[in-house]
Amino acid sequence: MRSFGVATSWLAASVAAAALIAVPTAKAQEDFPTKPVEMTILFGGTAQTIGQLLADLMSKELGQPVVPVSRTGGGGAIGYSHVHSTRPDGYNIVWNSNSISSGYHQGNLPFNYEAFEPIARVTVEVPALAVRADSGWESLSDMVEAVKSGETKLKMGASGQGSFTDLTAKALFQELGIEDKVVYVPYGDGKAPVELLAGRVDAAIQWPGQFIPHVQSGDLKMLCVTGSERVEVIDDVPTCAEAGAGDLDITMWRGLAAPEGTPQEVVEKLQEAARKAAESDQLKDASGKLGFEISFMDAQEFGELIAKDDEVIAELLKSGN
């Protein structure tokens, strides 16, 4: 029975200790962070790899570990919901992306981007449109001409409905005015490039990194990138706007956000840690190899960007369905 008493007092002690940890004080904000920060990661693949790297770099800046925790599923909805439900104290942040807007406007999230406090944008990724090298299409306009005059529809490979590459494809073909002559074929797990290689689709929109090896080997050709500026590693590929797609500018950003109500000082500390990480050689080195670009933006600018992109995505999803 004696050990039962020990257990009780031990439990009491732990409750007391927890109470000490849990009480928020004004001082806690100045000392932030006093314990590990959890960075929720919404997707696997490149998003996860960059997130892990960023967390690693930010840990060094903050003096406390930033722990990348993967909460995938539901197109990001699971992770957003988790972070949304946590205390706004800066110890729970999310490695977010445009998926906050596409998730909300597709009805998969009960809250929108306003439920989060932006911290900083860190990277951008720009999708590219590719075709087979033997397709005879040397430029975007060649492809558009062929589609307009052709009998059959253009088979266009991207990821599933509502995914970023799918949205990009819809926006591009709307801009080009040939959306009713395009069949969107949804592929998972970045399979679109192989399907293009094998000739089952006529064109594909994916991330440049997935196309580059096949472009180098002479099997595929990238016609344009969908951002407003060319991509550094493939600067011979024009932007779609340059190639004749109106003023198309679609770029996927990734950054950090915390639940709404997170104190301003805490956001600033995280923002500065992210800035240092973004300026590091390590991230720069990884960006070239993994196929993303570093493009830091502070909390305020980032907030404006999110709001602007949200309107664009809302519009796209409305017309897409």
Partner: peptide, 12 residues
């Protein structure tokens, strides 16, 4: 491996 932290009590 990430192990769960407690919402109310967090001993670590």
């Amino acid at each position: 491996v990430y192990l769960p932290h407690g919402r109310w009590i967090d001993i670590w």
